Computed example of a mutant assay.
Amino acid sequence: MSVSPSPLTSSAIVTKLRAAGCVFAEDEAKLILSTAGTPSDLAAMVDRRVAGLPLEHVLGWAEFCGLRVAVDREVFVPRRRTEFLVRQAVTRARPGAVVVDLCCGSGAVGVALAAALGPVELYAADIDAAAVACARRNVGAVGGRVYEGDLFGALPVALRGRIEVLAANVPYVPTEEVGLLPSEAREHEPLVALDGGADGLDVLRRVAADAPRWLAPGGCLLVETSERQAPLAVEAFSGSGLSTTLAVSEELYATVVIGTRLSGLSA
């Protein structure tokens, strides 16, 4: 007769995680213990984390803006710095606004905006099928809709000229620097969510070029980028006719370019 293995203790999990290089082993152990449903689930989760799977993929969720957002394996994990983009968007929006989360990944940004603003008309889109499937769980839970496709091509044409808040967490890592990312990102997140082209701004430029046709008068586009890329990103926004400002958080090491469609700009 086989005997079930004894459940892993908290201290044993911490030891395993620390040996695997997890800097916050104690915190991660608590999260894994609180999420695992059975001893076998617990052992499997610890093994996956020790093998290098991102903690959020192990747990099946990520904390973002105080919310628990589902994150499936091979889906981009929302970063804490992107909470700054959400905060900037909230100050420029109103309850009931038409909100679009473009390059949505798990849909974390859109869900956070809906939670902060109250009822909104929420849409999200991503080119990656796994991300869309995950986002439909998150965004659908708050009454939003998710579409699969390439940027604005995925959205209903009826949204043209109606979007009041357009949040686009585009990929912005230069192609040659993708290999320098932590292994958790390189090996477990989709390349399409990371690689922004030669200078990291290929997708940003495409979004900025088309945004004026989709934004409502006074509507705004918000895109995260790096401090180094900010001048060229601002240039791309301004070149499309958007009134452009830059917001920076030293605390979160976050840079957000914000472009507003002027009332007289034709869509």
Rank of each mutant, 00 (worst) to 15 (best):
L252V: 05
P212L: 08
V46H: 07
Y172G: 14
Y172I: 09
Y123F: 12
L31A: 13
R261K: 06
Y253C: 02
L151V: 12
R261Y: 07
A198P: 05
E148G: 06
I32L: 11
E224F: 01
G143F: 01
G259F: 04
R137F: 03
L191S: 12
Y253K: 11
A247L: 13
L201F: 03
F24A: 09
L117D: 09
N138K: 00
V173A: 05
T35Q: 06
P95A: 15
V132D: 10
L159H: 13
A185Q: 14
G197A: 00
A124G: 05
P39D: 14
V207M: 02
S240P: 12
E250T: 14
R206C: 13
V223C: 10
E176W: 01
E26S: 14
P174S: 03
C22I: 09
S249Y: 01
A29F: 01
R48D: 10
S10V: 05
R205P: 15
V23M: 05
R137H: 02
R136I: 05
F24R: 13
A154C: 08
A20V: 09
R186Y: 05
L191F: 12
A230W: 01
R228S: 04
T38H: 08
G241N: 07
V99P: 05
V77R: 01
A193E: 00
E121I: 15
A141H: 08
S34L: 05
F24S: 14
R79I: 01
P156K: 04
V192N: 08
G259D: 10
N169L: 10
P217H: 04
R87S: 07
L53G: 01
L67P: 14
